[in-house]
Each structure stands twice: as structure tokens, then as C-alpha cells.
Nucleic acid binder design. Structure first.
Lengths: 172, 172
DNA sequence: CCTATTGCGGATAACAATTATCCACGATAT
DNA sequence: ATATCGTGGATAATTGTTATCCGCAATAGG
């Protein structure tokens, strides 16, 4: 059981975007630089987050990314699912009906008890992630993190964020 | 986030071994046949379970595998950790201190808040798995599963289990 | 209108992990 | 003695992850 590295990058980027002003944006290249990540690969993940409606993207010069909604409305689960996909970690291959023990298919209408237990555990995992809001992460960082580090992050954002002419797009 | 296929195989094998008589054993080849799995690869997983003291192995003809302790004393977490390893799914790469924002190392003595939240969620996952005993899986299968399927499984075990001469090894 | 900047998507390659197979070896019941 | 079985190592086949590149569309600013 392993999460891709993209998850860590995605959450850090989301936390960073949470502190840009109003509807300003931050280019993907700046986010990559901020964490020492390869820009070309990070863009893939930023794309997934945009597709999941967690980020919004603005093309053109002065373009970039911003949060699609308030940090209070984004959970760690949203981000993890956007990067890792929605399929459960445990994939039941129904091996119970693959050997010589296999009998009539009508005997397997009930889901495999093992699968049920594993999925239930994963629901607990996801529930725990859903309880953590992006705003919690940012608040904890501002309150508990080292003040110098926090100031450095804010300065970096200040330096790279770009104000937008048009107002934030209307909600559909 | 994905679990290896070995987990499904391991749990099914454990549940099967739970219904062998006394200190009888069942050969790995029989377990592989039971679920239509490749024998040579399944042996690797059975080995991991033996190393984790969940299974016991007996060499020689009439040898094979059996549970190392009662099914009530084995949880799904035990099995998952034996196969997947004990490292957490989320591996914090400390990317917060990899970009130009990085400052003095003394600013990063506190663990990253993101890592804390992710590890907490995984503890919830493991706690849920620890609550499910192998005996629960077997009992549920006997009570709720299709009677024909249950009978077929029992017959398969009957046919392949092998009684042992010597008593179960003493607990250390 | 032109240009520079930015996100998007596809194609592709480098790399790592998982899955699978095979063989020589030691143990042991018959 | 011999056939059966688990162990461990070596090795391949397969898949997934990580990373890079290039052409395209969008757009702010001159």
C-alpha cells in the first residue's frame, strides 16, 4: 500500500494557493520551483486537480492556478482522490470462484466478506481524510509552524501571484 | 493507493487454513490450486506469512502450512502488514524544505502538518482492520455465504489436509 | 495585429515495483 | 532410498510510476 509522490506535492500546492489574494493566480512553474519539483511532471498533477474542480486554471500570460473554492470547502480527501483515483485500494479479484471449488454462479450473489471488511476499513480511512480541511492545514502551519518559514512562504507567494483583470468566473 | 493482489490471496488462504483439523497442514500447491493462483508466486506470500509468525510451515512429504495460532488471535491487519509491509502509505518527502523557500534547518523540527494528518488517517485504517478477526471472516462465510459454496470449500480442505505425527510445536 | 506567456494534451522514455517462473537445496515421512 | 514439500536465490516478464518534450489553444499587453 503506497501513495504516489504526487499526493504530497498536490497538498502542498493547494495549501500554497490558499494564501494567494482574491482571484489572483500563481503559475505552475512557480509552484514547482517553490518545492523543488520538476515542472513538467507537476503540471500533470495540477491538471488532475483542475479536472476535479479543486483548482481553476487561467490561460495566457498572467495566468496560472487558483483554488476553485474556499479552503474551508476543500478536504484532504478531495485532493487524495483527485490524484490517486476513486477506485478502492483493495480490488477483489473474486478468487473465491476461480479454483476447482467454484460452483454455480448463483452461489456468489453476496459480496465476498473479505471485500466487505477491506472496503469498510478504507471508508474509515477516507472519513478521517474528509475531516481535515485545507484551511486546517494552513491554520496549523500559520499557528504552529516556524514563523520564519511561514514568512518565507508568504513572501514567495507575494512575489509570484498575479492579479486578474476579470472577476472570478460565475458558478455554473 | 493500491494494495497488491497478494493481500487477497493471503486472506483467503488464511481463512482456508482456519478450517483444517487440529495441527494438520495443507500444502502450498493445494492452496494455489484452490484459488487458481500461480503456485510459485503464491509460495512467496505464504513465506511472508510464515516469517510474520502468522503461518507455520512443516517440511517433507505430508508437510505444508497451518495457522500459527487460533483464528481468533489473527486480524486482517496482521495479514495486510505481513504482505504489504509496515511502512505507512504516505511517505513525507519534506518537500516543504526543498525549494528556494527553504531556510535554516532549525525551522523544521516540528513534523509537517500534512504528514501528521495523513498518518492519522492511516491509523484509522489500520484500527478498522485490527478489529476484524480471521474467525469473523470464517464465521460470516459459514453463516451468510451460500451453503453449497461452503460445503465445497470444506470438502476441498478435507481432501488436501494432512495429519501430522508430532504435536504442534511448543510456544516459545 | 503581433508576440510572449501560460495551461492542455498527447507521445514517449527512463525508472521502479509488482508479478511470475525456475532451480538447487535441506528436511522428512514412508 | 526416494518422493514430497518448504526455502531461498536468481531471473525474467509485466505493469505502473515518474519524468520529459513538443505542438496547440488561449490571452494579456504593446
Amino acid at each position: 500500500m503506497k501513495l504516489g509522490e504526487g499526493v504530497e506535492a498536490a497538498i502542498h500546492c493547494a495549501a500554497t494557493l490558499a494564501s494567494v489574494d482574491g482571484n489572483s493566480t500563481m503559475p505552475g512553474a512557480a509552484l514547482a520551483e517553490c518545492f523543488g519539483l520538476s515542472p513538467s511532471y507537476l503540471l500533470k498533477h495540477l491538471n488532475q486537480l483542475t479536472a476535479a474542480r479543486i483548482f481553476e486554471s487561467v490561460p495566457g500570460p498572467a495566468g496560472g492556478y487558483r483554488l476553485a473554492r474556499a479552503a474551508e470547502q476543500i478536504t484532504l480527501l478531495d485532493i487524495v482522490l483527485a490524484i490517486e483515483g476513486r477506485e478502492p485500494a483493495f480490488r477483489c479479484g473474486e478468487i473465491r470462484q476461480r479454483g476447482p471449488v467454484k460452483i454455480d454462479p448463483s452461489a456468489y450473489v453476496k459480496p465476498c466478506g473479505i471485500n466487505v471488511a477491506m472496503l469498510k476499513a478504507e471508508r474509515a480511512y477516507r472519513a478521517a481524510l474528509a475531516e481535515v480541511k485545507l484551511s486546517d492545514i494552513v491554520a496549523e502551519y500559520a499557528a504552529e509552524g516556524d514563523p520564519r518559514s511561514y514568512a518565507a512562504s508568504c513572501a514567495f507567494v507575494e512575489r509570484h501571484q498575479r492579479p486578474q483583470k476579470s472577476a472570478s468566473p460565475k458558478q455554473i
